[in-house]
């Protein structure tokens, strides 16, 4: 009985999602398998594409980790010929390093602008361009209305947008993005106690996800793919359990 009840709930959930406009995307199956246990956090167990994900970072170190995590996602999203546009002011990215994450740096187009207004305009224009796979924007100040605009642009073209916001912790305005992440570095994952740094490892905090379950994971990058491991239940989850209990 219990099993069948769970099945009914799952079915109803997926029906609701379908009614809310969440579609199963074709191209993202490799991404879903690559994300490991992280994929359970998303609605329909599918990484949402054609929307904007927001990443918070408060230091150069966490900015590097964020870039790497996004790089891994872009790698799985873009397939053989996807093109990524990178919009920023004061870019610190080292293009050859993208190759370490299985990406092709020549398929990145970097747009370096100075004014904040131009950044938002360029992001909006790029998100409307259907020929792109992903658009990454390093924009610090985005108001709720502006994030709504970006979200509307992306819904037409089905491009996946990543917004990196270098801001101080706890000083972030609400936004219309589908998720909010924070990535920080963890000590590298060593192989059999060998000396050296080992594989890069991060703490991936999914702070907010529309219609999904936030959580925290330990993710390391090894052999060209993610290795995810769930760390803890978030307060949101605990609350849900309490309600059930």
């Amino acid at each position: 009985m219990v099993v069948s009840r769970n099945d009914i709930i799952l079915k109803l959930q997926s029906d609701i999602l379908r009614l809310q406009g969440f579609k199963q995307e074709r191209g993202s199956s490799s991404l879903n398998s690559g994300l490991g246990s992280l994929v359970n956090a998303f609605p329909n167990s599918t990484f949402p594409t054609g929307c904007i994900h927001e990443f918070l970072s408060d230091s150069k170190e966490s900015s590097a980790a964020t870039t790497a995590f996004i790089g891994g996602l872009v790698n799985m999203l873009s397939g053989t010929s996807g093109v990524t546009v990178w919009i920023s002011s004061g870019r610190k990215l080292f293009p050859p390093a993208l190759a370490n994450f299985g990406l092709h740096p020549e398929r990145f187009i970097f747009i370096d602008l100075k004014k904040e207004r131009d950044l938002l305009w360029a992001m909006d224009e790029a998100l409307k361009c259907e020929a792109l796979t992903t658009v990454i924007g390093e924009i610090d100040a985005v108001t709720f209305t502006e994030s709504r605009r970006l979200q509307l642009a992306v819904e037409q073209s089905n491009v996946t947008g990543f917004l990196i916001r270098n801001t101080v912790r706890n000083k972030v305005a609400t936004s219309a993005c589908v998720s909010r992440w924070r990535i920080t570095s963890l000590p590298g994952e060593r192989l059999d106690d060998l000396p050296g740094i080992g594989f890069p490892k991060w703490q991936v905090e999914l702070l907010r996800i529309r219609n999904g379950k936030p959580g925290t994971w330990e993710v390391s990058w090894r052999q060209g793919g993610f290795d995810t491991h769930r760390l803890q239940e978030t307060p949101h989850d605990i609350r849900e359990h309490r309600m059930l209990g």
């Binding site: 293009p95 740096p105 020549e106 187009i109 747009i111 370096d112 131009d118 360029a122 224009e125 790029a126």
Partner: peptide, 16 residues
């Protein structure tokens, strides 16, 4: 469109 508005030196692409 972007270079038309923001100038020619705004778009970069890199090769090894």
């Amino acid at each position: 469109r972007i270079t038309g508005k923001a100038g020619n030196d705004t778009v970069h692409r890199y090769l090894p």
